Computed example of a mutant assay.
Amino acid sequence: MKKSSTLFLLAAFIALSANSLAVQAQTSTAMPPASGASSNSGSSANEALTEGEIRKVDLEQAKLTIKHGEIKNLAMPGMTMVFRVKDAAQLATLKAGDKIRFRAERGNPGYVVTELHLTAP
């Protein structure tokens, strides 16, 4: 009797584990694409850009401190943080207080601004 109880508990555990994995799989496939744009919507690439304000420009390190809104492609809430910049030449025209729209990607290490546009004041 003890052996059959153990087998029953083991079978129940396996069934619950399989059900949990199936729910996780459904959840992960139901998420929108990383760019935040649906492939059928015909939306522009600008929707993938995040609004922000430059707080500091570090020319020597090729970094920007940006106060930004939600970065959807990184699933990151709004905050102020430091980003490396892919094109350091862009830093020469930027200053603290500039309003921007930008795209950031995971880099190694940290995050990298790969696209940046000044917005009208």
Results as ranks from 00 to 15, higher is better:
M1S: 12
M1A: 14
M1C: 04
K2T: 12
K3W: 07
K3N: 10
K3I: 14
S4C: 09
T6Q: 14
L7N: 13
L7W: 11
F8H: 11
A11K: 14
L16W: 08
S17E: 09
A18M: 04
N19F: 15
S20K: 05
A25N: 08
Q26F: 07
S28L: 12
T29V: 09
T29R: 12
T29K: 14
T29I: 10
A30V: 00
P32V: 07
P32T: 06
P33R: 09
P33D: 13
A34V: 10
A37F: 04
A37R: 14
S39A: 06
N40H: 08
N40T: 10
G42W: 04
S44I: 01
A45M: 03
E47N: 12
E47I: 00
A48E: 15
A48N: 01
L49T: 02
T50V: 11
T50C: 03
E53L: 02
R55Y: 02
D58Y: 05
D58I: 01
L59R: 12
E60W: 04
Q61R: 12
A62L: 04
K63L: 06
I66P: 01
K67M: 02
K67V: 00
E70Q: 05
E70V: 06
E70F: 00
I71Q: 04
I71C: 03
L74H: 06
L74I: 08
M76C: 09
T80L: 03
M81S: 06
M81A: 09
R84C: 01
V85P: 02
D87W: 09
Q90S: 14
L91V: 05
A92P: 08
D98N: 15
D98W: 05
D98E: 08
K99L: 15
I100V: 15
R101C: 05
R103V: 08
E105W: 05
E105D: 11
R106L: 13
R106N: 04
G107M: 06
P109I: 00
P109D: 10
G110A: 03
V113E: 09
V113L: 01
V113W: 00
E115V: 10
E115R: 14
E115M: 09
H117F: 14
T119R: 14
P121L: 07
